[in-house]
Design a protein around this nucleic acid. Structure first.
Lengths: 354, 354
DNA sequence: CTGAAAGCGCTTACAG
DNA sequence: CTGAAAGCGCTTACAG
């Protein structure tokens, strides 16, 4: 894929981008024959303005296309009404959907929302410092589903309003989380109940710096197997996407003893499905495959994977609401809002007849 | 799915969020025994500062955890280095990937990026006005893939730096676009070359207010059919997601004459695939199915849909670069950067043997 | 109901 | 190399 052309060739025009500076409150005031404070009052919907004056000002505002300078407003008033979302990614469904929560909720509440994607290269402390600076008077939501997010979260100063959507019972800040461990327990029990002897697991990367096996989903599986008296086989692979699942799936497909595979998310499950298909192993006939997250396309692939439904959007929205409480009332809500994931049985898992 | 609990019950604590106001340049100056301008010089990497002075200031900055107030900086300097992305959605792959472009590029260039999702409810003029206000000194990127985006784009004042990623040869602003029409022509010719008599089309919503049939993808198909002497059947359905594709697919599956289906995107194709499957029609044996966009999961479903690859991320990145040129140099690039989509043949389309 | 004054935290000339 | 002055566009008391 290449950039193939230019619409209009020829010498570059130096159109001096109409340096028509945005009109200020003062110009509007002059045009309306009032002081600039009165304009401020009208702009802010202050009641104490005579109707006739208000009309004159409104006319002038319309004429100039006046739009209050956001920086000046923020500086003078001290209120920013801005939230910055820190996330290591914005494209995979879990992230995009979680991001959608604060975006919607913030918009509805009149906050502006910024996004800063965290990369392994940048220094989390610096990134957080920048976000903090931008958020003066506002706050930060961090999507702490992975190492990068967790690292950023850990570096947010205690006095900066911040909430997070995390995978595990969170650090000492207001946060929202889904009980992944319980969900993984339920999924594993579901599979054991279907007659499977054990449940191999294809892992997503762990949120903290710890071993993958300590991640909530991995841990939930471990618990369920243990209490059924089964020694949990170690997790396979580590990744987020279908190619990673495909790789792990190829490995697992070689083992004829494998009758079911639990995956850390739906994209992994998709890759595993594909690998099983290539290896000539029928799903769910020979092998059952089950994922997490209920990505939007999940219900439409064949066989549709059994999955664990997660309300990421709700999670994100709740994170913003928690943040807003802090920003607007100086009240630090101690709650950890917990979301309960839900098992959605579909075609890819079935009762073991053997 | 419900909010099921609170982490720590009990009476709400009113932790007075450490009103430790962020340190200002003046406090730092005092601590370092210099004037606040000198601190400003150090912060901005100005060369004319004695090394010893610089060290003192840096120590004070570290001690206070000083972080320049973004609003004050923007107000005083007039530079914002901020870009607001206007988009009607942020979750579907085409949007999320396009959004990723400006996010990455802006981050690399030291810009902050804001996202504003457009909804059918809000007044595009007001939304744009708000974005404009925030973008004072910065600029706007609009993802104009649909009606909402196009409407917003049309309302951005001429003197506000703005670029867009659009589907069709764009309005009178710098913009980037992919030649969807040519891509659809190529896809259609590909299918005709495979021996299909005609090519039904499941449409995505048209970007402008015009009829769906005038959208670039629809138009490309029409052209290819016309030049092959085939009267194009009208487009079916209109939507973005798998459920919409499923609905259209059920309709098409009833018609035994249908041997191929071209879909406006991969999610539609997925839905169509599912419907064909349910109707007992084999893909690609009975019917070929082909989509657009190469969504990340596309290669992993079975049968993998033939698709048209689009570099959305590159598109978004280019849009930002175009914007940056305007913001930083007052130069209005006249170019329309064109991306060429690429046909990726996969399992879901094959030569017609009948 | 309306205006004159001071200040938000920074930068940009201008002096020294 | 460093500091005193003025100002960015707005708001928030304080007068009238």
């Amino acid at each position: 894929m290449h950039v193939t052309g230019h619409g209009s060739p020829g010498p570059p025009r130096r159109t001096p981008r109409t340096p028509r500076k945005a009109a200020s409150i003062r110009e509007v005031a002059e045009a309306a024959h009032v002081s600039h404070q009165t304009v401020s009052r009208v702009v802010n919907g202050h009641p104490n303005v005579r109707q006739e004056t208000r009309s004159r000002v409104e006319a002038a505002i319309a004429e100039f296309g006046f739009c209050r300078n956001a920086s000046a407003y923020a500086l003078a008033s001290g209120v920013t009404r801005a939230v910055t979302v820190l996330t290591s990614n914005s494209v995979p469904h879990a992230y995009a959907a979680t991001l959608q929560g604060p975006e919607e909720a913030a918009r509805a509440a009149g906050y502006s929302v910024g996004v800063r994607v965290l990369t392994p290269e940048d220094d989390p402390s610096r990134t957080v410092a920048t976000a903090t600076a931008t958020a003066t008077g506002g706050g930060i939501v961090v999507i702490g589903f992975d190492r990068l997010g967790a690292a950023a979260l850990a570096r947010v100063p205690a006095d900066v309003p911040c909430t997070s959507a995390v995978e595990a019972p969170p650090p000492r800040r207001p946060a929202v989380w889904a009980d992944d461990r319980a969900a993984a327990r339920a999924a594993t029990r579901h599979l054991l109940g279907l007659g499977h002897r054990t449940v191999p697991y294809v892992a997503i990367p762990a949120p903290t710096g710890s071993r993958a096996s300590m991640a909530p989903r991995a841990e939930g599986r471990r618990q369920a197997l243990a209490s059924a008296g089964v020694t949990p086989p170690p997790a396979i692979g580590e990744g987020w996407d279908a190619p990673a699942g495909h790789e792990a799936g190829r490995e697992l497909a070689r083992d004829p003893g494998v009758t079911v595979i639990l995956c850390g998310n739906d994209d992994l499950a998709l890759g595993v499905l594909r690998a099983l298909h290539h290896a000539g192993r029928a799903v769910p006939g020979d092998v059952s495959d089950i994922g997490f997250d209920d990505a939007p396309h999940s219900g439409f692939v064949a066989p549709a994977p059994t999955t664990v439904l997660m309300d990421f959007r709700g999670l994100g929205r709740a994170a913003f609401q928690l943040l807003r409480t802090q920003v607007e009332s100086d009240y630090r809500p101690p709650e950890l809002t917990l979301f309960a994931p839900e098992l959605v049985p579909r075609e890819s898992s079935e009762r073991r007849t053997a």
